[in-house]
């Protein structure tokens, strides 16, 4: 079960074992280069591990591609909002809705698109090109697209990076409030955010999880 992944000679993830409980919010903290994003990439299927296994609800998903994991219930957001540039908010959501349907020639269900956007308060902005959204709105839309698949586990890669300091808390409050019952794996730098929103905190260093602690103790652990 312990996961490993190297790039060239660099061991990015070097023997990680961990579990995420249903409905739990697990934060992963650690310095830059400690392997947090690689871990997210392994869990979401963007990368294949060199060794080790990943199980989801008892199903081995280690070799399942990205899209198959989404259908099982593992979705992810991206550190840099990964939106469809040049398209509107509505078109972005329409693509997310369509991505779950296979090669279907039926017309896109506008109700689904509306639901996806309304849930995150973006319906009013539907006709704006995504480039004109604020950084915070881009982050929210990125997560909203991932949530269309109704994931059981959502992997959030630095959800508050590139958002202004004073808005981070509000953003997380807003997002987490709309993800009740979804297990979250949150890679985060900001320890205030971690303390406020995580149930457990995994501390990573040099590709290993060095400790799993309650959020109150994280300041003592992470330097």
């Amino acid at each position: 079960m312990s996961l490993r992944k190297s790039f060239g000679g660099v061991k990015a993830v070097d023997g990680v074992s961990m579990d995420v409980e249903e409905g739990e919010r697990l934060a992963v903290v650690g310095p830059n280069g400690s392997g947090k994003t690689t871990l997210i990439n392994l869990l979401s299927g963007l990368l294949k591990p060199d060794s080790g296994d990943i199980y989801f609800k008892g199903i081995r998903v280690t070799n399942k591609p990205l899209h198959a994991r989404v259908k099982l219930g593992i979705a992810r957001s991206f550190q840099l909002p990964s939106l469809y540039q040049g398209l509107t908010v509505r078109q972005n959501a329409a693509i997310a809705v369509s991505a779950l349907r296979g090669f279907s020639l039926r017309p896109v269900d506008e109700e689904d698109v509306r639901d996806a956007l309304e849930r995150f308060g973006l319906w009013e902005k539907r006709d704006l090109p995504v480039g004109s959204l604020s950084e915070g709105e881009k982050k929210i839309l990125d997560i909203a697209l991932a949530v269309v698949a109704r994931p059981k586990v959502l992997l959030l890669d630095e959800p508050t990076s590139s958002v202004a300091e004073e808005n981070k808390f509000e953003l997380m409050e807003f997002v987490v409030g709309r993800l009740k019952g979804v297990s979250l794996v949150i890679v985060e730098h900001d320890l205030d955010i971690v303390e406020a929103f995580a149930d457990r905190v995994a501390v990573m260093h040099s590709g290993r999880i060095t400790a799993v602690v309650p959020p109150g103790e994280v300041r003592r652990m992470a330097v």
């Binding site: 540039q85 369509s98 991505a99 296979g102 020639l105 017309p107």
Partner: peptide, 21 residues
């Protein structure tokens, strides 16, 4: 259609479209 929207998604950002399922 759904398929047509996926095509647009693949054209602009294939990886993201795959990560959406």
């Amino acid at each position: 259609s759904y398929a047509g929207h996926v095509a647009a998604g693949i054209k602009i950002n294939e990886l993201r479209t795959s990560a959406l399922g």
